[in-house]
Simulated assay, not measured.
Amino acid sequence: MDIAQNAALVVVDVQKGFEEVDFWGTRNNPAADDNIAALIDVWQSTGRPVVFVRHDSVKPGSPLRTGYEGNGFKEYVERRRGKGNGAELLVTKSVNSAFLGTPDLGAWLREAGISQVVLAGIQTNMCVETTARMGGNLGYEVVVAFDATYTFGLEGPFGWRQSADELARASAVSLHGGGFAMVVTTEDVLTAAK
């Protein structure tokens, strides 16, 4: 796997509000935060661009709502912002895709001549997956560092319930098998990026 020298790391919604277990339920992938931190560190040390995406929920009571402490980035992410040698961008959004936020992520990537994006963050099957699908549709080479993402169990129609692991696996299969993105491990990405 090749990671371009100007590949953008897009860190999706790594916010304090996702720590509220009573709201979200049980998460998967306990190593995800360490993996996200490792990706940011390598991107910053190699001068690659990093995009930090923040979900500004418009839903009352959401742990990610604007003005609530849960809207802020987790401490390890906030501590790293502004520390890299490469370009950095903050995108805010109120929908699932980082490509539908402010400022326009696609325009920023095109202006910088970036065609490859590496995704990490929260939630695997929501904002990470939606951003990956849109990125693939827009013609970007999308890489998802699967173990640098996590999600929570959900109940859907007909009383169907899937665990966080089941949802994450289904998301990985859809993205990779459907040709939207290459789904790999953090170690794969770090090895290729160093």
Rank of each mutant, 00 (worst) to 15 (best):
F23C: 01
A31E: 15
Q15L: 02
Y76A: 09
H55P: 04
E78Q: 15
I36H: 06
A87I: 04
A37K: 13
E20N: 13
P49A: 00
D33W: 11
A31Y: 10
V91H: 12
R54H: 10
L64P: 05
R110P: 04
G82V: 08
V58T: 15
P103I: 01
T102F: 12
D33Y: 12
V14G: 00
G72K: 12
D22T: 13
D104E: 08
E78L: 10
G72R: 14
I122W: 11
L100N: 15
T102N: 12
G61Y: 09
L105Q: 05
V21T: 15
A31W: 10
R81S: 00
R110T: 01
R79S: 15
W108I: 02
Q116K: 01
N96T: 11
S97W: 10
G106F: 03
A120V: 08
T92I: 12
N28D: 14
A112W: 01
P63C: 05
S45C: 07
S115R: 00
V53F: 11
E20G: 02
E69D: 15
E75F: 08
R79V: 14
Q44A: 09
T26V: 14
V118Q: 01
V58S: 14
R65T: 12
E111D: 14
L119A: 09
E88R: 09
K74C: 12
S97V: 01
